[in-house]
Design a binder for these strands. Structure first.
Length: 212
DNA sequence: CACCAGGAATGTA
DNA sequence: TACATTCATGGT
């Protein structure tokens, strides 16, 4: 159902290299900090952390929580995000020792552990599962649901969309790049003022035919 | 000046 | 289940 869409997007965006990070710990940190926040503001926080030699969740648990909040201030919501990131780091280190030990385990076990952590909802859980831990799980965000509603004229629920994409794409790389490409096309052409007339998908979106 | 960004928790009905 | 509100910086 989405193979054609994938090709159209890939012809335009190619390999986006999602998730951008130096290691899996940094991916998890980015997943937490980018909640309702532009990526550029998150990059400043990550740069701040690196300059203070904080690169892993083990480094974070050694920090004072208020110190952590100051370092991530640029990504907004720093009080809740600081508390969440500290507790998530402590839980992961406490149960698994390090991020790598969470890979290649029973998918449901890891999924339930992550979704039950305070500060992690469905989208952040899916991002961590796919991009940091390399499980076969698609990331569904509001961009994706809105875009597919215009593209397919289907009001899918996240569970339905996840089943379709995870069945259709066997390779994790495709799930990773597909989500990245949908975010990019949403940012480029599908914000509140849609630019369907300039989008490379052009008339393939239902939204275009309805409003023009 | 207003609006929103690669959300989630909490509360209400 | 479906909404509303709060958290709060920084770019446009």
């Amino acid at each position: 159902m989405f193979k054609g869409l994938y090709k159209d997007l890939y012809d335009h965006y190619g390999d986006l290299g999602w998730w951008p990070s130096e290691n899996d710990d940094e991916t998890i940190i980015g997943c937490m900090l980018t909640q309702n926040t532009s990526w550029k503001n998150v990059e400043k926080s990550i740069k701040n952390l690196k300059e203070n030699n904080i690169k892993t969740l083990s480094d974070i648990v050694k920090l004072d929580e208020n110190n952590l909040k100051n370092l991530i201030k640029s990504s907004g919501f720093y009080n809740v995000k600081g508390k969440y990131l500290m507790n998530v780091s402590k839980s992961i280190i406490g149960k698994y020792g390090n991020v790598n030990n969470m890979k290649n385990k029973n998918v449901d076990e890891i999924l339930k552990f992550i979704i039950n952590l305070n500060g992690i909802g469905n989208e952040t859980m899916e991002s961590i599962m796919l991009y940091a831990l390399d499980y076969h799980i698609f990331v569904v965000d509001s961009y994706t649901l809105r875009f597919l509603k215009r593209y397919l004229n289907m009001d899918l629920k996240r569970s339905e969309l996840r089943k379709i994409t995870e069945d259709e794409f066997e390779d994790n790389y495709e799930l990773k790049n597909l989500h990245g490409m949908i975010v990019e096309i949403s940012k480029d052409y599908c914000r509140k003022k849609p630019l369907c007339n300039k989008c490379f998908l052009n008339k393939k979106c239902v939204y275009y035919s309805i409003n023009r």
